[in-house]
Design a protein around this nucleic acid. Structure first.
Length: 422
DNA sequence: CAAACACTCTGGGGTTCAAAC
DNA sequence: GTTTGAACCCCAGAATGTTTG
């Protein structure tokens, strides 16, 4: 374990990513290192510990090792008794560096600037990964569609949903992060009709008419994340590829052709819970994008998606698909500021602003320089007005207080003394 | 050599579930 | 019965190193 600690230390001191990979490559045969990395970064191993709940208790030596402890934690429903066991285990470790390493494993972060993606470059498929195609932002890369044919569809605001039917005909359903969704008995009939070795990608939404996009989103999440049998959910499918291709991470079939395949499959079988996301436009006219965005917003929808017609399906974020949505902003009064965590320790983590008698935290949108400035001169900023970008107003079901979804700091409004918002 | 890309890290609101109070 | 903490869902954006054109 001493050697592993030294390697982790080396990785922390190396700023270059290629350098980190070289260090890992050099230690490729170190089985213990491999095991430490797997137990730390495997997203399906969960230990139920946080910075708060880790408080080592001095105790005698344990007969089990760290991996046995981690296996116990990850295979149980975590409770205080198990947390106490973990804390006693930490407290029994005499060597400070060793204890620090174990603490990092429990928190699932070795803090060395490299994660599953980088590790898998050295040991292929060591850390299980589940990747789907993700979109870039249209307003950051509008040039991507220039002169190319593209397809516009509605942007749906639900839960990403990937249906996988493997070579043997077994069907499973996953979220974007690869979490399996169980209890979807209403999908069984449709799933039987899907050919083996097929992946259908889409958005899971509750089948209710006439709800505003944000309410539909909230109700969908409630249903899809609860335990047991789920009702009234539908898959709004927008893409299709083979399971082989999905595992490879790419389908070279063009987007337009994939959408045709999907459309055929759906119309031939007449599914009850799988619905096709309709195409609203195919062509090269860029002015249509904003026109359809405005229509979507007027229709209480989240926005639109622009898909390049000839692009492959790639299991990563790509500018071959662009999301187009509109943000709003409000000028809000700063109530207080808070210190951050991790790399923001000793500087600004978030500001708290007032919105309709509710306090909202805003922690995104600050440069490092601004974080330091605000943290070191709080009186210059508390009580002042900040321009905050947000997507939409939300209300939680607990106390119905209004809040803002995706709040981001834009700029200071020293020219104003009073907040303003709709 | 600048621009684009890839990846990591920190920050948000809202929900469920299980355990703790 | 209510509160709390972890783990999810939806994310946005800054920083930094690497690759590309």
């Amino acid at each position: 374990m001493k050697e592993v600690i030294e390697i982790v230390q080396k990785l922390r001191n190396e700023s270059s990513t290629n350098g980190k990979i070289a260090i890992l490559q050099k230690n490729k045969d170190n089985e213990l290192l491999k095991k430490v990395l797997l137990y730390t970064y495997d997203p399906f191993k969960k230990y139920g510990m946080s910075e708060k709940s880790i408080n080592p208790i001095n105790s005698a030596n344990f007969t089990i090792d760290i991996f046995e402890l981690l296996d116990i934690l990850s295979s149980s429903n975590i409770n205080d008794s198990l947390r106490a066991t973990a804390n006693s285990f930490l407290g029994s470790i005499q060597n400070e560096n060793e204890m620090e390493l174990y603490k990092c494993i429990l928190l699932k972060d070795l803090r060395m600037g490299i994660n599953a993606k980088g590790i898998n470059k050295v040991w292929k498929d060591l850390i299980p990964q589940f990747n789907v195609m993700l979109a870039d932002k249209y307003f950051e890369k509008p040039q991507k569609v220039k002169g190319k044919e593209f397809i516009i569809t509605q942007k749906l605001d639900g839960c990403r949903f990937v249906l996988i039917k493997d070579e043997n005909g077994q069907v499973k359903y996953f979220t974007r992060q690869g979490q399996e969704i169980e209890g979807l008995v209403e999908f069984e009939e449709d799933s039987k009709k899907i050919p083996n070795n097929t992946v259908i990608d889409g958005e899971l939404l509750l089948n209710i008419e006439g709800l505003h996009s944000k309410d539909l989103y909230r109700e969908t999440m409630k249903e899809s994340r609860k335990k047991g049998v789920k009702h009234g959910l539908a898959l709004h499918a927008f893409d299709i590829l083979t399971f082989e291709e999905f595992k490879q991470g790419i389908s070279k079939t063009k987007c337009k052709e994939r959408k045709e395949q999907l459309s055929n499959l759906i119309s031939v079988h007449g599914f009850t819970n799988i619905i096709e996301v309709p195409i609203r436009y195919i062509g090269k006219d860029e002015s249509v994008i904003i026109k359809l965005l405005d229509e979507a917003i007027a229709n209480d929808e989240e926005g639109v998606m622009v898909n390049l017609s000839n692009a492959p399906y790639e299991c990563k974020r790509t500018s071959n698909i662009l999301k187009v949505k509109k943000f709003q902003d409000a000028d809000l009064k700063v109530l207080s500021i808070e210190e951050g965590e991790g790399k923001n320790k000793g500087t600004l983590g978030r500001i708290n602003v007032e919105y309709k008698n509710n306090t909202i935290g805003v922690g995104s949108g600050f440069s490092d320089e601004m974080r330091n400035e605000v943290y070191n001169n709080p009186n210059k900023y508390i009580g002042k007005i900040a321009k905050i970008q947000y997507f939409e107003e939300t209300t939680n079901s607990k106390d119905n207080k209004p809040s803002l979804r995706f709040p981001v700091f834009l700029e200071w409004r020293f020219d104003k003394c009073e907040p303003s918002y709709y």
